[in-house]
Simulated scan of single mutants.
Amino acid sequence: MSLHNGLRIQVPDHLQERREPSEIEDIEMRKGQDRVTAQIEKTSQLITRVEEQLFSPWERLVDLLAEGYLIRLLQEQGISVFYTFQRLKDYSGKTNYEFDIIAQNGDEMVVVEVKTTLRSSDVKEFAYKMEKFREWLPRYAENTTYGAMAYIHSDSNVVRQAEKNGFFVIRATGNSASIVNQDGFKPKKF
């Protein structure tokens, strides 16, 4: 409220005269800004840790398999593959597929689905993809093709479900991997 020629006039706050903050108020504002900056930094670090937990295990597993373990494991099973390639995707728009790793030697190949946590729905989806493999990639129609599922963790009984679908099942542990199919397992040819 201000008095003008004897009249009381209500002046909105934003039009009233502004004063410079005192030295103490200025220090308090800087402290508040520092606290906000520190909180932003902590939040950013937390997001980075969560991203590492979500994505890094999968990426490490793919690298672990593609850079040698997969070839050795499959050769121990009598499948003579010699090289791998990763992330085969369809960009045509006709179909929608992605294969994480393919190990091949020209005549035989193993298509590997990689999951951080292997679930029943993953097995069903991969079984569908493997049934469609020759249709989607006719250039490999003459190859003897097998499927494999690699994982770090799994829901209960999912490993046996994958095995019943004819897939090699590969479990990663630390810096190694092993095939965990039961003795006598015979992989399905797709």
Rank of each mutant, 00 (worst) to 15 (best):
K164V: 03
V159H: 03
F185A: 00
S178A: 09
D183E: 13
N157M: 05
G174A: 08
Y151P: 01
P187F: 06
V159F: 04
Y151E: 09
S156I: 00
N181D: 01
V180Y: 09
A172D: 05
G184P: 02
I152S: 12
A162Q: 07
F168T: 03
S154R: 13
S178Y: 04
V180D: 08
K186A: 04
T173I: 13
V159C: 11
N157E: 12
K164R: 15
G174K: 13
D155S: 13
I179K: 07
T173W: 10
Q182V: 04
K164Q: 13
D155V: 02
D183Y: 04
D183A: 09
N181F: 08
Y151V: 03
A162L: 08
R171H: 15
P187G: 05
F185Y: 01
Q161M: 14
V158E: 05
G166V: 06
D155R: 11
S156T: 10
A172T: 04
A172Q: 15
N181R: 02
R171N: 12
V158G: 03
R171Q: 15
V180N: 03
D155A: 13
R171E: 15
Q161G: 01
T173R: 14
G174N: 11
R160K: 14
V158I: 10
F167C: 02
N181G: 01
G184V: 02
I170N: 03
V158Y: 09
V158H: 05
I170C: 08
F185S: 00
T173L: 12
G184M: 07
V158A: 10
A177C: 09
H153W: 14
V169T: 14
Q161W: 10
G184W: 08
K164I: 05
G174H: 09
P187I: 00
E163S: 09
I179S: 03
A177K: 06
G166I: 03
S154I: 05
F168A: 02
H153G: 00
I152T: 07
D155F: 10
R171S: 11
N181W: 10
D183Q: 10
H153T: 11
N181K: 04
H153I: 07
K186Y: 01
K164P: 00
F168M: 07
D155Q: 15
I179M: 07
G184F: 06
S156C: 00
V169N: 10
G184Y: 12
A162Y: 09
F185W: 01
S154D: 13
D155P: 02
S154F: 07
R171I: 06
H153F: 15
N181P: 04
A177Q: 06
S156Y: 14
F185Q: 03
A172R: 15
Q161C: 03
G166F: 12
Q161Y: 14
V180F: 09
N175D: 15
V159K: 12
S178G: 06
I152Y: 12
K164C: 03
F167G: 00
I179F: 04
D183S: 05
N165I: 00
S178T: 08
I152V: 11
D183F: 08
R171A: 11
R171C: 06
V169L: 08
S176Q: 12
N181Q: 07
P187N: 06
G174L: 09
A177S: 10
F167V: 05
K164M: 12
G174M: 09
D183P: 09
S176H: 06
G166P: 08
